[in-house]
Amino acid sequence: MRFVAEGREIEARIEHLVVAGWTGRDIGAVRHHIEELAALGVAPPSQVPLFYRVSQSLLVQAPRIEVLGPDTSGEVEPLLVNLDGTLWLGLGSDHTDRQLETVSVAASKQACPKPVSPMLWRFDTVAPHLDRLILSCEIRENGEWTLYQEGTLAMIRPLGDLVAQSGLDTGGAMLCGTLGAIGGVRPASDYRMQLRDPVLERSLYLEYRASALPVVA
């Protein structure tokens, strides 16, 4: 996989991928969300946060992904990549099968590709003002772009803590958790995502379409 960082192309061999879940910084809100999902049949996590190991082949840089059935949705998330001991920050989507999630959260994470932006920032360039970075996601509904998620990284556990807890080492990548969905979690086919740095006045972008394959028996 190739990324562009600091004006140059980086060849990245990703050897393992982790999806961090239940990473909200407000513990009360996390517990409330766990209870909401439990009412829908989603099993609660064994610990908070929880680190799901999934296939590294799920990481893709493509404007279109294919998923099985109509019950999937994306989530805007910060992406961390450890390359030869240097930590980089990027942008990705933890696209997830919501129907399968009621059976197994771990299986739902493994079921869908994870689109990521080709651009990276050195983590140490944003570390001093990390909580001020802004994540946002729009989905296309009824032909119009609708704001689906928005908030700062202050709503997610400190990324350095997630690195330490997960043991993310060289060759590893991690999606670091997401924000609440405005109007509730729901399927969509088109996504437009951004990670904005208001201090250094720059942004990472990710846009993709999820095409649903038919479910046959």
Score class of each variant (00 low, 15 high):
residue 122 R to V: 02
residue 159 L to F: 12
residue 126 V to Y: 08
residue 149 Q to W: 05
residue 2 R to T: 15
residue 31 R to T: 04
residue 41 G to K: 01
residue 21 G to K: 04
residue 179 L to G: 04
residue 17 L to N: 08
residue 210 A to V: 05
residue 6 E to M: 10
residue 200 L to V: 06
residue 145 W to M: 05
residue 17 L to Q: 10
residue 93 S to W: 08
residue 161 D to V: 12
residue 188 A to T: 00
residue 20 A to Q: 00
residue 70 P to H: 03
residue 204 L to S: 01
residue 59 L to N: 08
residue 181 A to L: 01
residue 185 V to T: 08
residue 191 Y to E: 11
residue 2 R to A: 01
residue 102 T to Q: 07
residue 121 W to S: 09
residue 131 D to A: 14
residue 17 L to M: 04
residue 47 Q to E: 15
residue 120 L to Y: 06
residue 143 G to F: 01
residue 104 S to Y: 02
residue 203 S to Q: 14
residue 141 E to Y: 05
residue 84 D to T: 08
residue 202 R to M: 11
residue 199 V to S: 06
residue 203 S to Y: 09
residue 97 D to L: 10
residue 213 L to D: 12
residue 181 A to E: 12
residue 13 R to L: 15
residue 195 L to A: 07
residue 108 S to I: 09
residue 37 L to V: 07
residue 167 G to E: 03
residue 122 R to F: 05
residue 47 Q to A: 15
residue 72 T to F: 02
residue 100 L to N: 00
residue 99 Q to E: 15
residue 13 R to Y: 13
residue 193 M to F: 10
residue 163 V to S: 09
residue 38 A to M: 03
residue 156 I to A: 05
residue 159 L to C: 11
residue 160 G to A: 10
residue 144 E to S: 13
residue 112 C to D: 08
residue 81 V to Y: 00
residue 149 Q to T: 05
residue 129 H to R: 04
residue 9 E to C: 10
